[in-house]
Computed example of a mutant assay.
Amino acid sequence: MNPIQIIDVIKHKNAYGYQWFVVVDRMPKRVYTRTGNMLVSNDSGFYDFLAIEGGTKAFGGRKFSIQLDDGSTFECHGQVWSCGAPKGTEPTVQLGIGTIERLRDCYVFSGASVSKARLQEWLDANEPSTDYRKYDRRETEEYWLEVLEACPSLKKQVSAQRARALKRRGVLIFKDGSARFWSPYFERKKAHKAKRTAEAAQ
Rank of each mutant, 00 (worst) to 15 (best):
C151N: 15
D124Y: 08
Q161H: 13
L103S: 12
V114Y: 01
Q67W: 01
I4A: 14
K57H: 11
N42I: 04
I4R: 08
H77A: 07
G78L: 00
S82V: 00
Q79M: 00
S129P: 06
A58F: 13
G96W: 05
I100N: 10
P86A: 03
W20G: 02
Q5M: 08
E139A: 06
S41F: 10
K167S: 12
A15D: 11
K29T: 09
V158P: 06
V80P: 05
T89P: 03
G55F: 12
D136C: 06
R164S: 12
R164T: 02
A150E: 14
V23L: 12
E142R: 14
D136M: 03
V147N: 14
S115H: 09
A117E: 02
K87H: 04
L172T: 11
A125D: 05
E101L: 01
K87C: 02
G45K: 11
V158A: 08
W144M: 12
L145V: 00
T92N: 01
F74C: 04
V24N: 08
G71E: 05
R164Y: 10
G55R: 02
R180N: 13
N2F: 05
D176F: 13
K193T: 00
F174G: 09
D124A: 14
I6Q: 02
E90L: 09
K87D: 07
V31D: 02
V93S: 01
W182G: 02
S159W: 08
L39M: 11
K195G: 06
T140V: 05
E53F: 07
L172R: 15
G17H: 09
V80A: 04
R169L: 05
K156T: 01
K167V: 00
D25M: 08
E146K: 13
G98V: 01
D8Q: 08
T73D: 07
V22Q: 04
Y32Q: 13
T130Y: 11
E53G: 12
P152R: 15
S129N: 11
E142V: 07
V80Q: 07
S72T: 13
W144F: 12
D176E: 15
K57P: 01
H192E: 13
M27H: 11
G111L: 01
E187M: 13
V22F: 06
I10G: 10
A165D: 07
Y47W: 09
A51T: 05
E90C: 12
S183E: 00
A194L: 05
I66G: 07
C151G: 05
H77K: 01
L50E: 14
V40I: 14
G36F: 08
D70W: 06
G111D: 10
D105S: 14
R162H: 10
P91W: 10
K175L: 00
Q19D: 11
T140Y: 07
R30W: 10
V23P: 11
F186Y: 15
S115P: 03
K167Q: 15
T140E: 05
A160H: 12
A150N: 12
A112C: 14
G55A: 06
W144N: 14
V171Q: 09
R137I: 06
M27L: 15
E146T: 03
Y18G: 02
I10M: 04
C151M: 13
Y185M: 06
A85V: 02
G60F: 10
A125E: 09
A160G: 04
F74Y: 14
G98H: 06
E141S: 14
T92L: 02
F181W: 15
